[in-house]
Write a protein that binds this DNA or RNA. Structure first.
Lengths: 219, 219, 219, 219
DNA sequence: AGATAAGCGAGACGGTACGTCCCGTCTTCTG
DNA sequence: CAGAAGACGGGACGTACCGTCTCGCTTATCT
């Protein structure tokens, strides 16, 4: 559940606590708090474990004891600040549900937290484990919900039965990341709407089957 | 044209050379060569200016004199090793032309040079100038060609006249980057084909106008 | 007591050790040892902190942590290699006592260690703190002994009661330094003898009082 | 006559100038001027050839062409700023003549130029040639005059005929340097007077011969 | 007049060492 | 036995100058 080395409920299986002084929850939270704080001030690059430990009033060793790397710590900090967000609604329309969640995601990317996402993905290019953790803790849960939302659309006949869900989702989010990470272009709701329309329309036309419904005129 | 500090055609405006000893072309090329060589051996992260200078038989200051950062140097080295590649053909079919170029790009990403692209984009998340240079030297030239290719398609009636070119291209390449940078999923020709089909179909269906042509059965 | 930043008896006032890992005595001695070793091979000028750290198998930062400059380190190393030397004897004759100590000092200056003295004083011309440390650790202790020796001479009636001790000592050592540092002339025992005789005679004649005793014929 | 590489009157022996562009006197003086200027601002240590050349509006190579080292340049600059100073008068009294010149020297040492003397001697401890040049251009000329002054004293019967001139002068100047270079103590006229009295008295008593004259009450 | 030669400002070159920063580990004492 | 403190060996950073070199230009003498 977490990239930090000790499970949230350590050694619960035996019902016994390990010997010795237990992990300090204060220290853990101070570290996560300082991480987010310093991340806001400067980039992931300038961020140093040394500075985090100093800011949190914690020994460097305590950081290293629980997180294997700066990246892991940042993912953990970001994930714990993004609990219970970015869910898909269930309004009866795939288009509306997906569109709303994409726009929520846009909101995060355009906020200061967008910089953290950028940092995680950036650093992840040099640290596969970090990206893996990012996917596990942040992407995967959303994708599971996305699958359900799309499947509801299939059930309702809004989407073709043989739609490749991953392909559709990669196209939707890829188009956003393209502008966010690489092109540094505006991320507007209009853009999201258009992308979504093309994907749904294009997917609908897949295999020559066409349903003919339009997605224009709503947001 | 280059991120290095001296323009390719220095002081062209006056037709005169600047005073002082001119820049050593030997040193410049040795540095670019060593950069690529060391990049092949280890990641961007392990790569140090110190090592590059040593390998190139050059003073560290000479590197810093001409490139503001490791990233800039890597972009320059990569760009100068990718001259005359990745062009769009002109076969008479938009689908075929774009598909071919996308697959060439796939080839690069799947080769060892993919790691360099990954590194540039990764580091670019912490250094806007670096990414800007990446776009200027690598993306922009391709996009210009892509515009032409798509415009040919419009002329031929293969694509709707009011197609948003940037949107279409961001979707195509975004879908690839999504798998390459974030999902670390397979980049197959099948994937590219599907993405392309959806974008072209979806775009064609735009504004309710549909041309009805199919893009299946080739690639 | 030392120019290095941690007192010889740290935190003695409280009887407690400061928090954190204590300073490594091994590292300290290895650094002093390497300093003397490399000084023997080459001049103070060629001596680099980089080389000292490498030779001592120590991080550069460890050197900088404890000594503010190369000069301070050299004074420390030299002083700690000159413990229990250069004392004044107590033979019952001022002339003999002083003469003997001057000659011991001559021995040091003419040995390889003379180069270290030269280097310290030379570098001290650009670094007042360094010279201050040199005086505190090397000159002052000898001068204290010299005062006692001269005072014994006054008690015995060998020297006038109102003799200016510092003036006499500055003349004696100044004459030696003149030849050692500036004129690069021979430093012979004969020279020392003559200087000493003139100072004692001249001082004795001070204020018109003359004792008439001669200092010739011994050494 | 000068440490700079081209004699003051170049190739005069043939009466012909060498071929090629002659040395620029402007550049030479600009360099000496900038050297003194920068020396006043900062120590010899911080002084860099790079900065001198820049300040003088001169190429670095021009400096290196004419002076073998920073020290040589500084000695040259200082010497050329101390022309026609520090001469011994001829008042009819050795004591008075020497005393006056010593005090002139004191005046230099206590002025900003004292720092330059300090720098030259300091750097000279690492560069024998530099010190040699210092002696040749600055000390030797004064010492020649000092010899004459002392010899006049011998002729007049103020000093013993077999006085060791170098010894006496080394003691006089050594006592001053001792306080100037090493002890960083006050350099007062009173100090000079006392030193001079002791040397002359002590020297007079040399070999048992005593002249009995006192040197008190003047200065 | 033209050739030859050296000095000139400028500034890039291969180097060396600087002093700093942070890494991840370790060693100590305190709670 | 975790934690705060902080020293440790190590490695790269980016900078400052070193002394040398390569330019185009200028200023002289010698054909």
């Amino acid at each position: 559940m977490t990239i930090s080395r000790q499970a949230a409920s350590p050694a619960r299986n035996t019902g016994k606590r390990p010997p010795g002084r237990p992990r300090s929850e204060n220290a853990r939270q101070a570290i996560l708090r300082s991480t987010l704080k310093l991340l806001r001030k400067a980039g992931f690059d300038q961020l140093s474990i040394e500075a985090i430990a100093a800011d949190a009033g914690v020994g460097k060793a305590t950081v290293y004891r629980w997180w294997p790397s700066k990246g892991a710590l940042v993912v953990d900090a970001f994930a714990s600040s993004t609990q219970d967000e970015l869910h898909f609604p269930d309004s009866g329309s795939v288009y509306r549900d997906v569109c709303q969640q994409l726009n929520q995601w846009l909101g995060v990317l355009r906020s200061p937290r967008g910089g953290i996402v950028r940092a995680i993905i950036g650093a992840g290019q040099f640290d596969p484990d970090l990206l893996l953790e990012f996917r596990k803790r942040l992407l995967r849960p959303r994708r599971e919900e996305a699958y359900e939302t799309l499947r509801r659309g299939i059930t309702r006949g809004e989407l073709p039965a043989d739609l490749d869900l991953d392909l559709a989702l990669d196209m939707l989010y890829g188009a956003i990341y393209m502008r966010f990470l690489i092109r540094h272009d505006e991320l507007t709701e209009e853009y999201v709407r258009e992308v979504l329309r093309i994907v749904l329309d294009g997917a609908a036309g897949q295999n020559g089957k066409r349903k003919g419904h339009r997605h224009n005129g709503h947001g």
